[in-house]
Amino acid sequence: MTFRWDILFRSLPYLWEGAQMTIRLTTTSVGAGFIIGTLLGMARICQYRPLRTLAAIYIDFIRGTPLLVQIFLVYMGLPQLLSFPMPRLTAAFLALSLNSGAYVAEIVRAGIQSVDPGQTEAALSLGCSNAQVMRYVILPQAFKRIIPPLGNEFIAMLKDSSLVSVIALEELVRRANIVITRTYRPFEIWLGVAFMYLIMTIAISRLVAYMERKLNIDV
């Protein structure tokens, strides 16, 4: 049994382009998911009941169905419904953002609810509106606390983004498959890909740890 690591090394630039796509896709999706999730998370605990129910249904649907099915639904289902062509990148971005939003919503909700109710009372007693309480008092404190779980979500999304290879978007896994069909060297390539993911996830958790120290989070 001989290993052909040279094939892996020669494929690295090609794979690296795929990894860049993975990073770009994950970053933008988690970014959009963060905005969706913040709104959803606030909707989950707002006073307006229909909005609360709607948010809960959305979150349950996303968390209770496979991401793979969601990707197919967006990539193939939506174009049928709306009869317009869906570019792969748009579909991947949309599916991952919508998915991430549901998970981030629960993180944001927990973060908001972890802030002492006394904070809200103090702000209200000063004459603040509910929106001002949220913006100036609750969210700044909640965001500090949600950075660690948000980091975990980022890592999970980075790994799960490999699923969009099924719609032939050329991220890291898709490119690995392409290399393997040309070279028939699955072990070397997949091991290399595994390490590339590992390097990315370690980098993220280091970054999160650094931010935690910077913000002096004590949870």
Binding site: G118, Q119, E121, A122, A123, V137, P140, K144
Partner: peptide, 9 residues
């Protein structure tokens, strides 16, 4: 308030 409830940030 009893527990002050200052804004810690």
């Amino acid at each position: 308030f009893q527990r002050f409830n200052l804004f810690p940030h």
